[in-house]
Design a protein around this nucleic acid. Structure first.
Lengths: 212, 212
DNA sequence: TAGATTGTTAATCGATTAACAATC
DNA sequence: TAGATTGTTAATCGATTAACAATC
């Protein structure tokens, strides 16, 4: 039964479904049952059927799910069928690494521009994207259709840059700074998705503790 | 009441407690109540008291929690008071960015060495860490006390490198490849903590969809 | 048709929130 | 002391798992 409000737990499993289906597809697998997919992913068949039923009825009794079409359905649910505009702010080591390595297109985004305040990097082109002066960020956002900003600035600038981005009507912020940036109440619809490297490493540290 | 098995949800909040307490500490705040901390972090006071009670009794009725000592307690729970050995495998753009930017020490790790197979990078020193030939990885792990490996190799090598690391007795793998590496059953105690960039961006993509 | 497997309803499990006696 | 706030127990809420009729 199609659900209105999808729980966070379900949403965060969607990209994993996508990755697993992509692998099956690459291997030429045509159809898969919830129990086989569950075995692959370490989930119960029940959970998979529950998850998918939030979005529609994609399977067929006695057959299972068609790998290709389920894959496309989930891509569409995630919005990966379209290309939304993205910019990157803060062209340091991490920003550069993302620009060079990360495949924005395959997650449904088109990295259009990058911004920094360092004269040494302004004007450079990295992986086909020009680095612009951050002073002109507002002007750029005014003129272009940008949905998401990748935030790779030093921590101390994170909130200020966020405020500027939000004021320009950005829809989402992909936050790599080790700081929980906040969006003002009047723009509560702006989504912040954070990758906190050190949180993750600290969890790993906890999990390998000796408590034998 | 001290608990034996801590739930994943609680564990993943610990680094956030840490960051928030660090900020309070920096601001010279001496004590804080669960309700004030909850307000800061967007959690209920109940949840904070429940979370902390898994590990001991850190507060005092009528007073709250001492910021400094709670901070130190949580750091210790996470294992950040010690420095464990770490290596990094795969010195590409992302690997280099982590070596240059990421503060391993403040999360309780000492990055001792890096490995790659590219002759161009072998022998180079990056941020004080020497890049070695990956062929010698086993020998190195034999001779040094390394708890964690940072996995920043290209996706297609992820599983093979993981197998080698696990065979050498690594305790944890910090996985940055977009692949869910698996540890063999006989080493099920090896912990894999993954940062999947594209999963995160895809979740953001979903969350900014228009469904008005 | 018979076997397989779905989507959904019900049952269970776990996590969050509320309430409150204990006590600083 | 009186007010504040803890740690813990109980209640609620939500997510996962189990069961099963429907049906390909």
């Amino acid at each position: 039964m199609r659900k209105d409000k999808i729980s966070n737990a379900v949403i965060r499993r969607l990209p994993r479904y996508c990755r697993n289906l992509e692998a099956l597809r690459r291997d030429g697998v045509e159809r898969i049952s919830s129990s086989a997919l569950g075995r692959n992913m370490g989930l119960t068949a029940s959970q998979i059927r529950q998850d998918l039923s939030c979005f529609g009825e994609f399977g067929q009794q006695g057959y299972g799910y068609n790998v290709e079409s389920l894959y496309q359905e989930i891509r569409e649910i995630l919005g990966m069928h379209r290309q939304r505009g993205a910019i990157l702010v803060g062209v340091g080591n991490l920003g550069r690494a993302l620009m060079r390595n990360f495949d924005f297109a395959s997650s449904g985004f088109d990295l259009q521009a990058a911004f920094d305040i360092q004269p040494e990097v302004i004007g450079r082109e990295i992986h086909g994207v020009t680095v612009r002066d951050a002073a002109g960020m507002e002007e750029y956002l005014e003129a272009h259709d940008v949905a998401v900003a990748v935030l790779t600035v030093p921590q101390q600038h994170a909130q200020r840059v966020t405020d500027r981005l939000v004021a320009c009507g950005i829809r989402g912020i992909w936050n790599f700074t080790n700081f929980d940036v906040e969006v003002p109440e009047e723009h509560a619809d702006v989504v912040v998705e954070s990758i906190h490297f050190s949180d993750s490493l600290q969890v790993l540290s906890y999990l390998i503790r000796d408590n034998a």
